[in-house]
């Protein structure tokens, strides 16, 4: 089993300038009923994207024709709340490969990485710069280079480096899967169990 490899993505962005976006907003609980990983993208940000009559809310960035691309940009503390991986599946299902924010919730970060989505944590100042730029130039592009761990505004050349642990970076660059790694550790795990003393 392998993930889609990730190297460089250059794309226009979809900006959602809201802080503390919890996973209930990313994918509301009533859409968690499917027992496979497919189909969640249609309900990404469901209650912000559609009104109570199921009509698209035109002002919401995902419905705004000015915005497109595979990079989602959001306010700080993105992905807080429920551990539902359905949030990562919905983001991937809607065609995103990168989420940019100035702060990510821990569980969301792991879930994103386990689905080949790169969470790029930037400074508050850089995030504000992106929002400001997109507000005046909606088609502006951002380049995310995982090899160099750099995010660049194509328009101005301004860049910032981002952190990711070396192991996860290798996994994403090569499309490796943690589960294969763990299954291959069978003997070591059994040796650990043999000496553990607690219940």
């Amino acid at each position: 089993m392998s993930l889609q490899k990730f190297t460089v993505i250059e794309s226009a962005v979809v900006p959602v300038q809201v802080e503390n976006i919890d996973t209930d907003q990313i994918i509301p609980a009533r859409f968690l009923k499917a027992t496979t990983r497919e189909g969640f993208g249609d309900n990404l940000f469901r209650d912000w994207r559609y009104d109570t009559q199921n009509k698209p809310v035109q002002s919401f960035p995902l419905n705004d024709a000015r915005y497109s691309g595979s990079i989602l940009v959001a306010g700080k503390n993105f992905g807080c709340g429920s551990s539902r991986e359905h949030a990562a599946w919905a983001i991937a299902g809607a065609g995103f490969r990168v989420v940019v924010s100035s702060f990510f919730a821990d569980i969301f970060k792991n879930n994103a990485l386990n689905n080949g989505i790169l969470p790029v944590q930037v400074s508050d100042a850089f995030l504000s710069k992106i929002f400001a730029l997109v507000a005046v130039k909606p088609k502006t592009k951002i380049r995310v280079d995982l090899e160099k761990c750099e995010i660049t505004l194509a328009e101005t050349g301004e860049k910032e480096s981002f952190e990711i642990n070396a192991y996860k970076r290798t996994c994403l660059l090569n499309g490796y899967d943690d589960i294969d790694y763990l299954i291959a550790m069978k003997d070591q795990i059994e040796a650990f169990e043999a000496k553990k003393t607690w219940v």
Binding site: R84, N111, N114, I179, I183
Partner: peptide
Amino acid sequence: IGTSEVEMVLASQCIM
């Protein structure tokens, strides 16, 4: 944890 991690634990009794 997320569902990929649920699978890790079911498969190996470990998590990363």
